[in-house]
C-alpha cells in the first residue's frame, strides 16, 4: 500500500516526537478500557479520572521539572500535605480569609522547596538523600501540628476549587492544565527552560557556559514546592477537611509517571507533558481496576503488568515509527 507524502510527513513528525510512544500507549489503554467497560466513557467516570489525575498530576509536573534538572525531591508529597494542613490551621484556627490562607500555604510550599534547593546547592548534597530527610521533618511537623487529627470546618467558599466543575470539567483538573501549560511554556519556549535542559544534560558544562546553575536549581526547587503546596490546598478544598495524611501517596506515583512519560531520571530529557501522559496511564489503571472489580490482592500485579506493557509498547512503537518514517 502506498502512502501519500502528507501521511508520510505526519508519521515522520509523530515519530520525531518523544511523546509519540507514551501517547499511543495512553490511547491504547484508553480505547481498550472504553471497549471493555460500559462504565468507562460515562461523563461521570471521566470526571472521576480527571479529578484524581489533577492532584497527582500537579506533583508529577513539579517532579518532572526537577528530574529534567537531574534532581529528585521525595518530599514534594509531604510538602503538599503540610501546606494543606497549614492552610486549614490558618483558615479554621486563626480565622484567616480562606483564599489568603491558601495563598500563604502555597508560598510556604515554595519556601520549603527553596529550603531543599538551598541545602542541595549550598551544601552540595544529593537531592534524593536530602529529601528523604526533609520529608521526615515536614511529615513530622504535620503530625506535631495536627496530632494526627484532621482539621475540620474548612469554609465552604473554597470547596468549589476542589469539588466544582466548569462545563463538566473538574476545577482542579483545569488548574492542573494551567500549571502544565505554564511549566511547558517555560521549559520549551524560554531561555530559562533551555538552561534547565543544559544543566540536566551536563551540569559542569552548563557552568562553563556561564549558566547560573545553582540559581536555576534553587528556583526550580522553589517552584516545585509551590506547585506541591497548590496540590495540597486543592486537596483540602476537595475533602473539605485538612487531613494529615494528604500527600502520603504522592511520592512514588509522580516519579513512575514521569519515567513512563519519558523523563530521564539522569536529567536533560523529557517534559511535563510526557509526564502527565504517564500520570494519565496510572490514573486510568487505578480507575479500571475498580470498574473491573479486580481483587485487592491482585491489584499490584495487574497495575504493575499494565505499566510494564505500557513502557514496552512505548519502546516498540517508537522503534516502529522511526523505521516507518
Amino acid at each position: 500500500m502506498q502512502t501519500s507524502p502528507t501521511q508520510t510527513s505526519a508519521v515522520a513528525h509523530l515519530a520525531r516526537s518523544p511523546l509519540a510512544g507514551v501517547f499511543i500507549a495512553l490511547a491504547v489503554i484508553f480505547t481498550l478500557s472504553a471497549l471493555i467497560s460500559p462504565y468507562f466513557l460515562t461523563p461521570y467516570n471521566l470526571s472521576v479520572i480527571a479529578r484524581g489525575l489533577a492532584f497527582v498530576g500537579l506533583i508529577t509536573i513539579a517532579q518532572s521539572m526537577l528530574m529534567v534538572l537531574g534532581e529528585l525531591d521525595l518530599s514534594l508529597g509531604v510538602i503538599g500535605g503540610l501546606c494543606g494542613v497549614i492552610s486549614g490551621i490558618l483558615m479554621v484556627r486563626l480565622g484567616f480569609e480562606p483564599y489568603s490562607a491558601m495563598l500563604l500555604a502555597i508560598l510556604l510550599g515554595g519556601c520549603l522547596g527553596l529550603l531543599n534547593g538551598l541545602l542541595v546547592t549550598v551544601l552540595r548534597l544529593h537531592s534524593l538523600v536530602l529529601t528523604i530527610g526533609t520529608a521526615g521533618i515536614f511529615g513530622g511537623a504535620n503530625l506535631v501540628l495536627t496530632r494526627g487529627v484532621a482539621i475540620t470546618g474548612i469554609p465552604r467558599d473554597v470547596h468549589y476549587l476542589g469539588r466544582g466543575d466548569v462545563l463538566g470539567v473538574p476545577v482542579p483538573f483545569l488548574i492542573m492544565l494551567a500549571a502544565l501549560a505554564f511549566a511547558t511554556f517555560v521549559m520549551l519556549k524560554t531561555p530559562f527552560g533551555r538552561y534547565m535542559y543544559a544543566i540536566g544534560n551536563n551540569q559542569a558544562g552548563a557552568r562553563m557556559l556561564g549558566i547560573k546553575v545553582d540559581k536555576i536549581r534553587l528556583l526550580v526547587f522553589g517552584v516545585a514546592g509551590a506547585i506541591a503546596g497548590l496540590a495540597g490546598v486543592l486537596m483540602v478544598a476537595r475533602l473539605g477537611t485538612a487531613q494529615p495524611s494528604i500527600g502520603e501517596t504522592w511520592v512514588l506515583a509522580p516519579i513512575a509517571a514521569s519515567v513512563i512519560g519519558g523523563v530521564a531520571t539522569t536529567g536533560g530529557i523529557g517534559s511535563p507533558i510526557g509526564a502527565i501522559f504517564g500520570a494519565g496511564i496510572i490514573a486510568i489503571i487505578e480507575n479500571i481496576i475498580v470498574l473491573f472489580g479486580v481483587s485487592p490482592y491482585w491489584q499490584g500485579i495487574v497495575s504493575g503488568a499494565i505499566v510494564v506493557l505500557a513502557i514496552s509498547f512505548d519502546a516498540i512503537s517508537r522503534r516502529y515509527l522511526r523505521r516507518d518514517a
Binding site: Y39, N45, V48, F55, L239, I246, N287, V290, L291
Partner: peptide, 16 residues
C-alpha cells in the same frame, strides 16, 4: 489507609 485513595475508589465504584 489513605482517605484520598479511598475516595478515588468510592468515586470509581459509583461510576459502575
Amino acid at each position: 489507609a489513605d482517605v484520598v485513595q479511598q475516595n478515588q475508589i468510592i468515586d470509581s465504584a459509583l461510576a459502575t
